[in-house]
Design a protein around this nucleic acid. Structure first.
Length: 521
RNA sequence: GGCCCCAUGGUCAAGUGGUCUAAGACACCGCCCUUUCACGGCGGUAACCCGGGUUCGAAUCCCGGUGGGGUCACCA
């Protein structure tokens, strides 16, 4: 297996070791660093469906890359062998593409720093771990999970929950040999230095300081040779020359460990930006019980990617202006890390719904019609391929009902009357409207007029309605309500003349006759 | 519990010491448009967590409290 990016590691020897006394996340001030080419990454672990929060992290990274002409990398953090799967990796990538977030380097597209799946870069981590071992910045730990669990429990009982006892910190080669003879497989632990404070310079949070004594020696390479998250990110972010690490706030407390690793390996740290979390209605971290959390679910319900992107961008970021609706291009123009909010945001489904409806109403009708087709198929209203006239007709249907939609899945509740043969009386009021004494005369007149009409356009329908009313001696609501009831089974809905035009002569006349027959029986 | 982060209407948020009797959006309420519903338009209700400082002056700065969240794994 060939691993690119080894060059980055080979610089190791030459790079000056950053003294342990140094605090801070690396050299160079902000302005200086900003001149560096922007290289950001989205690094999901493929352990389940693509979460809303992950999507926002991906979006922010992508926007940042596009805003500054940088490179957006997608790397797969699949070191959790138990939970990772190709299936969810593909899921995530598909969702990324659906949202319109394309990547320049990474899994599937390749690039100079690949491979982009961590399980395919094991050799690299191995080598870096050995380096640390040689420098005495890491050591082999022979404790078993059971021993560690017991130790943790004891620690917890004393109320001091933190870290590792350091039992294997200073094992002699002989100790190691003996333990290995027992059949124990060592994990590799990082030796956290005696350093007072380590400060994270964060682009959204400012300087955040952590005390080293609060950080216990942590494992960087598991006993099976797989790296641990904190180790793999550092090695990869360096070897992929990542300039800015933009990720969720839950990683903030991991950052000092990572900085320690960067320092020990003699590497410069990237810039960090920790974006606050997305919370559910009850203010706790967004999870399944708060409703749909997977991007996939929104896609299935018929949310538009542009609405979701727009919504996600506004969660934790704002322009400062009054506008709320932004295309991807407009977001790129305006995005900046400086305007990312520090406080967590609650996922507001109402606003997403409004935005989605807004996009459904505003987008070109062909676009919405095309997106609607799979939903109509699924509801059993349509089979593809569509004849051209049928498509034109469908466009009119969609144009008529889209103002009622929150998402495309709602279509099925509004289009039944245009597809089905029979009308179902849905409301009591509709039945009552049909029972009016003037109704038979009105319907008879209208049915005749409709049948005699050469082409039932909306304009023609309007005129016919008026004429029929005149013949029956009624007007206004007395015309519209019963006709609407007969044609749609409901007393509310889109403009009646347009409904009639879409339904066509046959259906209109037939339904009128049907209502009459039903009424007299 | 230790450590860390956060705190403007129900929600998203603008606001970076005076122009704040605090913007905008969603939701809610009302009016208008309309044959109905919806869309749309117009208007309205509603907020600086508490307590101390600093200052001529604080939503804005500092300290403390409270509340919420995150994190403490051979998970990421």
């Amino acid at each position: 297996m060939e691993i690119h990016g080894i060059c980055a590691v080979s610089r190791l020897g030459a790079a000056p070791r950053i003294p342990a006394s140094r605090t801070g996340s690396g050299s160079g001030n902000k302005e200086e660093r900003n001149l560096l080419p922007v290289r950001v990454r989205f690094a999901p672990s493929p352990t389940g469906p693509f979460h809303i929060g992950g999507a926002r992290s991906a979006l922010f990274n992508w926007l940042y890359a596009r805003r500054y002409g940088g490179v957006f990398i997608v790397r797969i953090e699949d070191t959790d062998l138990e939970r990772s799967s190709r299936e969810s990796e593909e899921n995530i990538l598909a969702a990324l593409r659906w949202l319109g977030l394309d990547w320049d380097e990474g899994v599937e597209v390749g690039g100079p720093n690949g491979p982009y799946r961590q399980t395919e870069r094991l050799e690299l981590y191995q080598r870096c771990a050995e380096q640390l071992l040689r420098q005495k910045d890491a050591y082999r730990c022979y404790c078993t999970e059971a021993e560690l669990a017991a130790e943790r429990e004891a620690l917890l009982a004393r109320g001091a929950l933190s870290g590792y006892s350091g039992r294997c910190r200073d094992l002699s080669p002989e100790d190691c040999a003996r333990l290995e003879a027992e059949g124990r497989k060592p994990a590799i632990r990082f030796r956290v230095p005696d350093q007072d404070a380590i400060v994270v310079r964060d682009l959204v949070r400012g300087e955040v300081s952590f005390d080293c004594s609060d950080i216990g020696d942590f494992i960087i390479l598991k006993s099976d040779g797989i790296p641990t998250y904190n180790f793999a990110v550092v090695v990869d972010d360096h070897s992929m020359s990542v300039s800015h690490v933009i990720r969720a706030e839950e990683h903030l407390s991991n950052t000092p460990r990572q900085i320690l690793l960067f320092n020990a390996l003699g590497w410069e740290t990237p810039q960090f930006a920790h974006v606050s979390l997305i919370l559910g209605k009850d203010r706790s971290k967004m999870s399944k019980r708060h409703g749909a959390t997977a991007i996939e679910q929104y896609q299935e319900k018929g949310y538009l990617p542009e609405a979701l992107v727009n919504f996600l961008a506004l969660l934790g970021w704002s322009t400062g202006g009054e506008e709320e609706v932004f295309s991807l291009d407009e977001l790129i123009q305006q995005f900046s890390l400086e305007r990312v909010s520090k406080s967590p945001a609650i996922f507001d489904l109402d606003k997403l719904n409004w935005l989605n409806g807004h996009y459904i109403r505003q987008a070109p009708i062909e676009y919405i019609t095309d997106l609607s087709i799979p939903f109509l198929e699924k509801a059993g209203y349509l089979t593809t391929p569509l004849a051209p006239e049928r498509y034109e007709w469908l466009k009119e249907v969609v144009a008529l009902v889209r103002k009622y939609l929150v998402c495309l899945e709602d279509l099925k509740d509004h289009v039944g009357i245009y597809f089905s043969e029979k009308v179902e009386i849905l409301e009591d009021e509709a039945g009552e409207a049909l029972a009016g004494s003037h109704v038979p005369a009105l319907f008879a007149a209208l049915e005749r007029l409709v049948r005699d009409c050469p082409a039932l356009s909306a304009d023609a329908a309007k005129a016919l309605l008026k004429a029929a009313g005149k013949e029956a001696g009624v007007k206004g609501k007395q015309i519209f309500i019963p006709v609407r009831a007969a044609l749609t089974g409901s007393i509310e809905g889109p403009d009646l003349d347009k409904i009639m035009a879409i339904l066509g002569k046959e259906k209109v006349a037939g339904r009128l006759a049907g209502a009459l027959a039903r009424d007299s029986s």
